[in-house]
Design a protein around this nucleic acid. Structure first.
Lengths: 170, 170
DNA sequence: CTTGGAATGTCAACAAGGCTGACTTAAAAT
DNA sequence: ATTTTAAGTCAGCCTTGTTGACATTCCAAG
């Protein structure tokens, strides 16, 4: 079970110790962990008749206020019809505001209202609390490794989107 | 950006360095990475008119051959109606075999057929390849951290299910 | 032996949230 | 002036989740 500890000091080239069994454990851990990762916000959203799609939109609008619909589209990786359905609900419920662009009037810039920010805070509080607990339990070294593996698991274009977000965010 | 390295040697108690910004980066990394994680099998499944639900069933039947429907239900965390639809398709297509229980004839024990095992191999090959690449890129230390954080992110009952699976598997 | 309950399966209906395709409007770009 | 782009909308489809109702089979307790 625990016999598979990496031979340390051999460098990144010699990862032959990775058996299929160990890889599968990683795959399953990812599956279960993702469920845990979304469980708390899901509970909050269910009470409001929203879903994960709404959460994602709210998250990234909060993340990059004033972002355009097209921009959001490429981050989320869904069709505009799909996003539009969600956005319409959020705007209709007064969580999101859509402002016509100044320089380019075709564009709509998206912002959270106070109400939207309140929900975002509640959702991300729940998620951060779990994240913080997991980080604390796993320890600081583990967190670095966690992030490194996650980044390595992304597609090239996702990596670009993520890197771009981090520029803006930090 | 990279200034947030953990103060080493302070132990798990002093994780005050975890800013909301760093936690949010972890959250977003999880979101993007999960997309990458499922992207390869999704492409294979799409050609066969299957979805992730089929993949999950196939994965865990392969993982624990002879498992009962109820067992699978609790691992996957869906309703029996939802699972049943998927199983019916897989059985109908000759990927899964359902055998009546010996001691308890109410139970159905699930097995992959040769055809089912072939698809499973193709799916998990794709997923393992990406996993292996990510592990290699991130390094052996990172992998340990990755798994530790993921496990810490699970709910208690998921943890039990996962631990139980690992017993069987190793 | 009968009956209650558990495990399984099935049917129907519904919702969320993806998708495609077609089309409009407005504005920018060429 | 024409084409392209951004956004929105309508209609319809699919997967995968949900409930609720109900049949079957069979173990186990009375």
């Amino acid at each position: 079970m625990e016999q598979g500890r990496p031979r340390q000091g051999l460098g990144g080239e010699s990862l032959l110790f990775l058996t299929d069994e160990q890889l599968r454990q990683g795959i399953e851990a990812m599956f279960f962990a993702y469920r845990g990762f979304t469980a708390d916000p899901d509970r909050i959203l269910a009470e409001l008749a929203y879903g994960r799609a709404h959460h994602r939109a709210i998250h990234f609008i909060n993340r990059a206020p004033g972002t355009t619909v097209n921009n959001l589209l490429s981050i989320l990786g869904v069709t505009k019809q799909s996003l539009n359905r969600v956005l319409r609900a959020l705007i209709g419920d007064g969580l999101v505001e859509s402002r016509v662009g100044v320089t380019d009037k075709r564009e709509r810039h998206l912002f959270l209202t106070d109400k939207g920010r309140a929900l975002e805070a509640s959702l991300s509080d729940a998620q951060r609390t779990r994240m913080r607990a997991a980080y604390k339990e796993a320890g600081p070294e583990a967190v670095q490794g966690f992030k490194r593996v996650l980044e390595a698991m992304m597609d090239a274009d996702m990596r670009r989107a993520y890197a771009k977000l981090r520029e803006t965010g930090a």
